[in-house]
Design a protein around this nucleic acid. Structure first.
Length: 333
DNA sequence: AAATAAATCAACCGCTCTACC
DNA sequence: TGGTAGAGCGGTTGATTTATT
């Protein structure tokens, strides 16, 4: 369990920003020898005065030819939110679902953009549930009741009208309530309902207000996502253009699904009846992740089936393009 | 135009996990 | 079985860029 001693302060190894020369050395070495050897041995072999860890980070987060740079498109953002709601801060696992994006990039984007956006919407970015902190409640109560000095001037009906003006917020809360229900099911692990039972599509009673409008609403193509090349938005790596940069498959940002395609594809089964032996380790990891993520308090121990449920949900989320518009409208304002 | 604040993101730190002996 | 090395991950920092005053 020892920590890697390769990054001692006394080692004399260089730290900080990489120079184009260093990048060039690292790239040419990996092009020649591959990146699957020992990272610790790599710097010396490549003629770099860096620790292996630093080289690995530079390669995986910046120099790798399949990295897609530039702004995240709406669909990527939406997928990150979906995955984060299931996986928590498991950035590498989230990154595995976004081709060309690194865990570091996603983590940064989450912390700088998405987190703020969710907070502004009154959603706790950790639990993905509506925030119930004092500020939010204070705002709500302020909206619902006029200041004392004005109270006597306002007709009681105005209070009702004020409340009705909050209807859009109520609609948002209703949407979130459905999400919350899903997480409760996931957390308790006591019952594993058929997905049909918890899918609002098949259960109109669970549909949030205006859900039909949301579901049937075809969205506009995002101009930021028009390129399927790494240079979304036409950006290139800061450190220079390398000939090894190749086109890659990315999320098809323009391919928005509609309700009918979701219906046709149906949702995948979430529970494996007889998992393969190799899934045992995965299971352990899922449970570990779930425990560390700590959705909700005091939930019972997750059963193995619940772990499969998480895995299935992750798969469901990964099967993007079909369940797309529902979740998009459901989660993203 | 200069100063300051806010936002962004590359890189580092330290911990955990896994493979190997 | 326990110890160690190495890789990988998530959190954090700090330099740089951009926006605001």
């Amino acid at each position: 369990m020892g920590r890697s001693p390769c990054c001692d302060d006394n080692s004399g190894l260089k730290k900080g920003p990489w120079t184009p020369e260093e990048d060039e050395k690292l790239i040419s070495y990996i092009q020649e020898h591959g990146s699957h050897g020992s990272w610790r041995a790599l710097p010396k072999a490549a003629g770099l005065n860096r620790c292996g860890k630093s080289c690995r980070l530079r390669w995986t987060n910046y120099l790798r030819p399949d990295i897609k740079r530039g702004r995240f498109c709406e669909e990527e953002e939406e997928l990150i939110i979906k995955l984060h709601s299931v996986l928590g801060n498991k950035w590498s696992r989230i990154a595995a679902h976004l081709p060309g994006r690194t865990d570091n990039e996603i983590k940064n984007y989450w912390n700088t953009h998405i987190r703020k956006k969710l907070l502004q919407m009154g959603i706790d970015p950790v639990t993905h549930k509506p925030r119930t902190d004092l500020n939010l409640l204070a705002n709500l109560s302020q909206l619902l009741s006029p200041p004392p000095n004005l109270a006597n001037l306002i007709n009681p009906w105005d209070n009702i009208n004020n409340a009705l003006r909050l209807q859009p917020n109520v609609a948002e809360l209703a949407k979130l309530q459905v999400l919350q229900n899903i997480f409760q099911i996931l957390n308790t692990g006591n019952s594993l309902p058929n997905m049909d039972q918890i899918t609002p599509l098949n259960n109109p009673g669970l549909m949030p207000p205006h859900a039909n409008d949301l579901l049937g609403n075809p969205s506009n193509p995002n101009p930021m996502c028009s390129s399927s090349q790494f240079g979304v938005g036409g950006q290139v790596p800061k450190s220079g253009e390398y000939s090894t940069w190749a086109s890659m498959d990315t999320i098809n940002c323009n391919n928005k699904s509609n309700l009918s395609s979701l219906d046709e594809s149906r949702l995948p089964s979430l529970v494996n009846i007889s998992p393969e032996p190799s899934t045992m380790n995965k299971q352990k990891q899922i449970e570990s992740n779930t425990n560390s993520t700590n959705y909700g308090s005091g939930s019972s121990e997750l059963t193995a089936a619940t772990g499969d449920l998480f895995e299935g949900l992750e798969k469901l989320l990964d099967d993007d393009g079909n369940s797309d518009s529902f979740w998009k409208d459901f989660i993203i304002k």
